Simulated scan of single mutants.
Amino acid sequence: MKRLSLILLAVLLLILGGCSQESGGDGKNDKEKKIALLMADLGNPFFHVLRDAVVNQGEELGYEVLVYDGQNDASKQPSQVEDALQKGVNAIIINPGDESSAANALKDAITQDVPVVTVDRSVDVDGVLSYLVTDNTKGGKLVGEWLQKKMPEGGKVIHMEGVIGTAPQRERGGGFLSMIDPSKNKDSKFEIIDTTVGDFSMAPAEAAMSDLLAKHDDIDVVFAQNDTMAVGVVRAIETAGRQDDGIVVIGFDGAKEAYDLIEEGKMSVTAVQDFEFIGSESVKYVDDFLKDGKKPEEKVLVDVYMSDEKK
């Protein structure tokens, strides 16, 4: 009887051990899954749309999302990547401050088999799972086409660029100039009278525009490469008392602040990029890869459209 009891106990222990192994056989499913989201600058209100989309989609799929703010300082992101890796994240979604600062840290992540998706801007490193981005070149061209229809007689243009060297700065500017700059389009009736840098931020844009308003008394158009800078441009125009000049202010993003200014008649139009789609889609990319090894396209361009009213 005692022998039988021992045999039954041994069988029971084997069964329990097997169940324990089976429940842990899903690997990381029993552990808390984490995604790191590294944002270049949450001081830009429009980037909150991207952050919220990643957080909401991540939570829906069972991930904790660790959010890092680069505060418009690309040098912060390498240590933020390292911190995320130390915390055992399953994947990294990064909106890079620039194309090179975080490259080495992201190489470490890729070496550790942590998938990396870059959003809005690219990064100079091989092995990234996907680069998911607004079609900025097309967006810049759409701005130029809109302006040609708005002002077929042409006019004098200020071009306000974002952070120099970033893909959005190059591509939005390149697309816009290909339509508006007479040196690139012989049919253009416009004149680029000045180019300045606003670093995709409101205060630098406002200061730069104040200087330009003091320098030029014949500005017809300002194209700011994002809506945050466009807000700074409008503020500078108001401070200078130039509201009645009829300056056409164009932004890029589709931010709430831009629509508010459009409604007030202080801004004309914005090129809309779908950050909500980009954010949620980036989470789906890493989730599909982690679950099934499914890889998305290496580069995905998201469409842009012009809008002068809220959807």
Rank of each mutant, 00 (worst) to 15 (best):
Arg3Glu: 11
Leu6Glu: 12
Val11Asp: 05
Leu13Val: 08
Cys19Gln: 08
Gln21Glu: 14
Ser23Phe: 14
Asp26Cys: 15
Asp30Ala: 15
Lys31Thr: 14
Lys33Asn: 11
Leu37Val: 00
Ala40Arg: 00
Asp41Met: 00
Leu42His: 01
Pro45Trp: 13
Phe47Tyr: 06
Val49Thr: 11
Leu50Pro: 05
Gly58Ile: 03
Gly58His: 07
Glu60Ala: 14
Glu64Ile: 09
Leu66Asp: 06
Asn72Gly: 01
Pro78Ala: 11
Gln80Met: 04
Val81Phe: 01
Gln86Trp: 10
Ile92His: 05
Ile93Ser: 00
Ile93Ala: 00
Pro96Trp: 01
Gly97Val: 00
Gly97Thr: 00
Ala105Cys: 11
Lys107Leu: 14
Thr118Met: 04
Val123Leu: 09
Asp124Thr: 02
Ser130Tyr: 12
Tyr131Lys: 00
Asn136Phe: 07
Gly139Ile: 00
Lys141Ser: 04
Val143Ile: 15
Leu147Thr: 04
Gly154His: 09
Met160Gln: 08
Gly162Ile: 03
Ala167Gln: 10
Pro168Ala: 04
Arg172Met: 03
Leu177His: 12
Ser183Glu: 15
Ser183Leu: 14
Lys184Phe: 06
Lys189Arg: 13
Phe190Met: 05
Val197Cys: 03
Gly198Val: 03
Ala207Pro: 06
Asp211Ile: 00
Asp211Pro: 05
Asp217Ile: 01
Asp218Met: 14
Ile219Cys: 11
Asp220Thr: 03
Asp220Leu: 05
Phe223Tyr: 15
Met229Asp: 03
Ala230Trp: 09
Arg235Cys: 01
Ile237Ser: 08
Glu238Pro: 11
Ala240Asn: 13
Gln243His: 06
Gln243Asp: 12
Val249Ile: 10
Gly251His: 03
Phe252Asp: 04
Glu257Val: 04
Tyr259Ser: 07
Ser268Arg: 14
Val269His: 05
Gln273Leu: 03
Ile278Met: 12
Val283Met: 07
Tyr285Ser: 11
Asp288Thr: 12
Lys291Met: 09
Pro296Leu: 14
Glu297Lys: 11
Glu298Phe: 12
Lys299Gln: 12
Tyr305Asp: 02
